[in-house]
């Protein structure tokens, strides 16, 4: 049943593509697709992003629940696992950094197998880790590379990155390594969801939709590089005009550019509503950002009101007379 979800997403993406084709090619709504939608999408993205984070920030963390997979700091002669059970803020930062930069949690405890003589074997799903790592890092590098369209003068760091990414230019003209990697990684991550029944079972339409959308962005981007060239001067001039709030229209530019742009707009507008919010979320997840001090410090539930305690003594004081009358035993006379 769950397979329908992927079909829905494909249909949705194709439908969006058709909207754009009709809108730009057929009706010529350049203003809508070239100026209004991008502006709206950026506003959506920023406002939605900030709103979501603030919404999360206003929820209390009732329990002290750091994820722990090592020995907590306790007695001096017991060796604590600083990395997997961080006791200090520095330790938390280090663990978070490893999570964010190298996706360490993906490498751990993906599968558990019981081996013959009562031996647990933790298995890693190396491919998922590799795929995710390749995808996210390429994504970051590609984003940074794109900053050449937004910045004037172009910083030398970007040029350097570009040079490094295109180190195989000698082999295949202008195909960047990250372009290829992201395409492979994304295809793997998507196919994985379709092929494995367990993962298919837990996947929602949106889990297929976002990778497909990104795939659309990547494919249109690569096509623009390799097959159907786009006038980069007009593109950059358009970006600069948008940034200076005197928008112009990139009219002569290839249709592929509009597909690319439209999908990017959809993605960033959808971003605050989607699971993509794991980007800020990783910083705000209590299981990862708390120090493991559940033994050494007292954690107070923030929504605990002070409870009015009615002690036995007060009770006795209140009903002393009545109790005396019926002859109940009293602690104090």
């Amino acid at each position: 049943m769950a397979n329908k979800n992927s079909l829905y997403s494909i249909v949705a993406v194709v439908f969006l593509l058709l909207i754009l084709l009709v809108g730009v090619q057929g009706l010529g709504w350049y203003l809508l697709f070239g100026v209004l939608i991008p502006y709206v999408a950026v506003v959506f993205f920023i406002v939605g992003f900030v709103y979501q984070v603030l919404r999360w920030a206003s929820s209390p963390v009732p329990f002290h629940i750091p994820t722990v997979c090592g020995q907590q700091k306790s007695l001096p002669w017991i060796k604590a696992d600083k990395m997997d059970s961080p006791q200090t803020t520095g330790g938390v930062v280090a663990r978070l950094a490893l999570d964010i930069l190298f996706f360490r949690p993906l490498l751990k405890n993906d599968r558990i197998e019981l081996q013959e003589p009562q031996k647990l074997l933790f298995k890693t799903s190396t491919y998922l880790w590799l795929g995710a790592l390749a995808f996210h890092w390429s994504c970051l590098i590609i984003l940074l590379r794109h900053s050449r369209f937004f910045l004037e003068p172009v910083p030398s760091v970007v040029l350097w990155l570009q040079w490094f990414d295109g180190i195989f230019q000698g082999l295949l003209p202008i195909l960047y390594a990250t372009d290829l990697i992201i395409l492979l990684a994304l295809s793997y991550l998507f196919i994985r969801r379709v092929v494995y029944p367990q993962i298919r079972y837990i996947s929602l339409p949106s889990d297929y939709f976002v990778p497909l959308l990104i795939l659309g962005i990547v494919v249109s981007g690569i096509l623009m590089r390799l097959v159907y060239r786009v006038d980069l001067m007009q593109v950059k001039a358009w970006v600069m005009s948008m940034l200076s709030f005197h928008p112009t229209l990139p009219k002569g530019v290839n249709l592929l550019f509009y597909i690319h742009l439209f999908f990017v707009c959809l993605l960033i507008a959808y971003f605050p509503l989607s699971k993509l919010m794991h980007m800020p979320g990783i910083f705000l997840s209590p299981t990862r950002n708390l120090r493991n001090v559940s033994r050494s410090e007292r954690h107070i539930n923030p929504w605990d009101r002070p409870v009015k305690v009615h002690t036995y003594q007060e009770y006795e004081d209140e009903f002393r007379e009545a109790m005396k009358e019926v002859g109940l035993p009293l602690e104090k006379d």
Binding site: N3, K4, S6, L7, I10, V14, Q25, V194, V195, L223, V227, Y228, N254, L255, L256
Partner: peptide, 26 residues
């Protein structure tokens, strides 16, 4: 169902790269 999915995905890709697409882009 998987086959159905693959067929549709394949057709979509094919449709995108076919002659009409070429004419629009180039």
């Amino acid at each position: 169902k998987r086959r159905g999915f693959l067929t549709i995905a394949g057709l979509t890709l094919l449709g995108l790269t076919a002659k009409p697409g070429w004419d629009i882009f180039s």
